[in-house]
Write a protein that binds this DNA or RNA. Structure first.
Length: 574
RNA sequence: CGGGGCGUGGCGCAGUGGUAGCGCACUCGGUUUGGGACCGAGGGGUCGGAGGUUCGAAUCCUCUCGCCCCGACCA
């Protein structure tokens, strides 16, 4: 490809509204343009990268027996009503009506549609297992699109689905996908971490996320360098020091605490208590039923863990009026002592964080404004219905699996694989007959990769002051030839000849045939991130050109006749 | 959805009531030519939109739309 024929609208300045590196650079280097919030046009360079990523994905999916489909992006509302997700997805789903007034939507994912195909055509265990996938556009009306391609409303997803007769089959399909994902991200040149994850609204028993560590990410992952434990903080647990409580009084003692509203207020209040000796009482609405969530004073609730622990769908902190009506006191003086969820008018559940187990001599609200209780022993004084891990782990805490220490990093999720189980096959009636003649729901798995997000993650990982540094496997071109002065006939001819040679050798080459100064061309080449640049300049008289490696910024003289071979070796080494 | 910010030429920005500007980019001519050259001459903007105030509005008022950031939210 000749630069003069390529649409690459590079910008000299950074776009004003781009914050993260991938957004800034992909716009500036002429890869993408925004159409509206969370919706981007991919320009030719970006499309080349996208197709390479898709091809790698396709090859690895096919390698594990995946069959490529292409399902519709527009779905009848009926399909989603059957699975129950028409309601669950809420405002995140783009919805529309057809001319007859029927509910339609744009697909956020394709469990429902693939399940419809499976239930109509698969009746016997003999037809299983199946692994189906597609590379398709997904639509999600995100409340807050941001960070360029990292969080968008329309994007390409590779989504795969496995169909098995039983759990053992699912385990095998899941492992195949796991291995394929590792191969895909490795081939794309990404440094990634696979972590245990919450399966959230997808349902199902087990899920693994593939994360790329970057401060531009919105997820937090906990990792132990020593043993390799890795989990999303929505799932992660840790070892924390146990606290040895004093015996305390035989019964809780109420004491006045005028003006005390927060945990930290009480730590400094005379007669108060350290934060880790307080019980924080949060009131949550779980599917419109109120629950008390008890945390140690210095711990933060992770709402996803609360959702996972309770199975609730609509989870939110209770409103101040709800709290007052239910508890008779306001936030700041709340406590669970004396509340029994079996008989209480409003509170239907008391769930407590694991770190509170067996604690004694604790301080908590008295359910009476401006009063607290001290000397509270959890087991003696509070009727806990459920215990669960509800807190977010913090860096520096102990690894749950070894003697190591946990680090917490920001990361972006580029892939997610789920063991769905029978959630969709049961709700939508996809069943097969087993060898024994009994009818069972198909056991499913679901496996996704965000293609543009993967591209953006690569840019986050690999960039410098001059621009993008693409891994060779997904770079828009393998090499760029930069004739230093197009008007110098010897240079221009040599560049042209080399270009033809490399192209016919199957090395994807961009010839910068623009009549621009060398500096402009160098800067543009650096910006768009082509892995290797061949500079054709004065040394052509000696039959030499310069080979510049984008990632190291190292330059070496190479005989023009040796360029193809040298490049081929360097590309193979990548 | 709450809070904050911003909408002026392709990009980045200035312009507090009196003829819409600057830098970059673009076009033409010339000089240059190894890390975003220089000189000269040009083209390009209903100032996001609607309504209002005023002799006169990019500028003041009202409404509205859009975008960005923080939070909430989120396979």
């Amino acid at each position: 490809m000749r630069w003069s024929n390529l649409f690459v609208p590079t910008l000299r300045d950074d776009p004003a509204d781009a914050e993260v590196a991938s957004h800034r650079l992909l716009v500036r280097a002429g890869f993408i343009r925004q159409l509206t919030a969370g919706v981007y046009s991919l320009l030719p360079l970006a499309q080349r990268v996208r197709l390479k990523v898709c091809q790698i994905i396709r090859e690895e999916m096919n390698r594990i027996g995946g069959q490529e489909f292409l399902l519709p992006a527009i779905h009848p509302g009926e399909a989603w009503k059957e699975s129950g997700r028409w309601e669950v997805m809420g405002d995140n789903m783009f919805r529309l009506r057809d001319r007859r007034g029927a509910d339609m939507c744009l697909g956020m994912t394709h469990e429902e549609i693939f399940t419809i195909i499976a239930r109509n055509a698969i009746n016997s265990y003999r037809q299983l297992p199946q692994v189906w996938y597609q590379i398709q556009t997904k639509f999600r009306d995100e409340a807050r699109p941001k960070s360029g391609l990292l969080r968008v409303r329309e994007f390409t997803m590779k989504d795969a689905y496995s169909f098995d007769t039983d759990r053992a089959g699912l385990d095998k399909s899941f492992q195949d996908q796991y291995d394929a994902y590792c191969a895909i991200f490795t081939r794309c040149g990404l440094k990634y971490t696979s972590v245990e994850a919450s399966s959230g609204a997808m349902g199902g028993s087990q899920s693994t996320e593939f994360m790329v560590r970057t401060d531009a990410g919105e997820d937090l992952i906990a990792v132990c360098e020593k043993c390799g434990y890795a989990a999303n903080v929505e799932k992660a647990i840790s070892r924390i020091a146990t606290i040895a409580d004093e015996e305390g009084p035989a019964a809780p003692e109420e004491f006045p605490t005028p003006g005390v509203r927060t945990i930290s207020d009480l730590t400094t209040f005379p007669g108060g208590a350290a934060a880790d000796c307080q019980i924080k009482t949060l009131v949550y609405s779980l599917d419109d039923k109120l629950a008390l969530v008890l945390m140690r004073g210095d711990h933060e609730l992770n709402e996803t863990k609360l959702i996972d622990a309770t199975g609730a769908i609509n989870v939110r902190p209770a409103h101040p009026e709800e709290i007052r009506e239910a508890m008779g006191a306001s936030a700041g003086s709340l406590g669970a002592v004396g509340i029994d969820s079996k008989t209480h008018r409003h509170i239907k559940l008391i769930i407590a964080e694991e770190s509170l187990r067996a604690r004694r001599n604790m301080t908590t609200g008295a359910n009476k404004d401006d009063f607290h209780l001290r000397g509270v022993a959890i087991d003696r004084d509070i009727r806990v219905d459920r215990w669960a891990s509800l807190r977010s782990v913090a860096g520096g805490e102990g690894c749950p699996q070894c003697e190591g220490t946990i680090d917490v990093f920001k990361a972006v999720e580029v892939g997610h694989i789920f063991k769905l189980g029978t959630k969709y096959s049961e709700s939508m009636g996809a069943r097969v007959l087993t060898a024994e003649g009994s009818e069972v729901p198909i056991v499913m798995g679901s496996y996704g990769i965000g293609v543009e997000r993967l591209m953006a993650a690569a840019v986050e990982l690999y960039n410098d002051d001059a621009g993008i540094i693409w891994p060779a496997s997904i770079a828009p071109f393998h090499a760029i030839i930069t004739p230093v002065n197009i008007k110098d006939q010897a240079i221009s001819d040599a560049a042209e000849r080399l270009y033809r040679q490399l192209e016919s050798a199957g090395i994807e080459t961009l010839l910068d045939d623009r009549d621009e100064r060398a500096g402009v061309k160098f800067n543009d080449a650096d910006l768009i991130g082509v892995p290797f640049r061949i500079t054709v300049g004065k040394k052509i008289k000696e039959g030499k050109v310069e080979l510049f490696t984008r990632s190291t910024r190292a330059s070496e003289d190479v005989a023009i006749d040796a360029v193809e071979e040298t490049l081929r070796a360097k590309l193979a080494a990548n």
